[in-house]
Simulated assay, not measured.
Amino acid sequence: LALHLPFVTLLNPLWFSQSLMKVVWKDCSDIQETLGAVSPKIPSGIYIIQPENTDHLKQVFCEMDYMEGGWTVIQRRTDGLTDFKRMWSQYLDGFGHLPGEHWLGLRQIFNIVNQRNTRFQLHVSLVSQDDTTTYASYDNFWLEDETKFFAIHLGRYAGSAGDAFRGYDQEQNQDTAPFSTSDIDNDGCSPFCTFANKAVESCSVNQNNTGWWFNQCGKANLNGSPLDQDLSTQSYIHWDTWTKNGTLVKIKSVTMKIRRVEIPNLK
């Protein structure tokens, strides 16, 4: 049966990627580059990838419509229905529903961004409660390995949301911070740190038992729950450099996605 290219765009991406092409790709950028040569329209959806130097296949959600496509979604928060109050083991391997809210998993993110001769851009898309959109982008994103608790590394910032990862001073800087959860605490609060004018022993516990790259808590935590916005707690989604008239913008949804950039690897 011959398939014309316009029909290909209507196929389920998961079937399209594995049954039609019989190819295993390294990440969504690899898919976009390969399939872009044979189809003018590549559908967003679930694809199967296998980053180099790994021996297992992994399903990921590829965003192929946004900014020329090729984005591997590593985190999405939309309605608060997926519980992000998780332990280290769950943040390690991932959880949630790929088309909706999910965390891809630290091991999988590490495997993607640490492939040879690659460099990845991180793009954070934010939507406020009143449907205003903004973004923050970093031109070089990678993680250290599991022995270093997947410490985050960020390149140059661009965007309209402000650089919440680095905050306003060095004490708030989360760049190079290791990942923390409520049961694996690497946040630097020893014996405590001050966050929102109160003493905090654990940033994860203080922020709804969610996992993140905390450094004495800092200005960013995108793994909080949108449904906690109206509570007088500090457990909601944080990107505390996004303000309007001096007031923090309440965030309704967020997506974190990564894409290869055509620059020699500088890691």
Rank of each mutant, 00 (worst) to 15 (best):
L5V: 11
L5Y: 14
F7C: 06
L11F: 09
P13F: 11
P13T: 09
L14W: 11
L14A: 11
W15F: 04
F16S: 04
S17K: 04
W25A: 01
S29E: 03
E33P: 10
L35C: 05
A37Q: 09
A37I: 08
V38R: 07
P40H: 08
S44Q: 09
S44M: 11
Y47V: 02
Q50M: 15
E52T: 13
N53G: 07
V60E: 02
F61C: 01
G69P: 06
V73A: 05
V73D: 04
R77E: 04
T82P: 11
M87C: 08
Y91F: 07
E101D: 02
H102E: 10
N117E: 15
F120S: 00
S125N: 06
L126R: 01
L126F: 08
V127I: 14
T134F: 01
T134R: 12
T134M: 02
N140T: 15
N140R: 04
L154P: 03
R156V: 07
Y157V: 04
G162D: 08
G162N: 04
Y168Q: 12
N173W: 02
T176A: 15
T181Q: 00
I184Q: 07
C203V: 05
V205P: 05
Q207T: 11
N208T: 15
N209K: 07
W213D: 03
W213R: 06
C217P: 03
G218S: 04
T233H: 01
S235D: 06
T241S: 10
T241P: 06
V249N: 02
V249G: 05
S253Q: 06
S253L: 03
V254T: 06
E262A: 10
E262D: 12
I263M: 12
I263P: 10
P264G: 06
K267S: 12
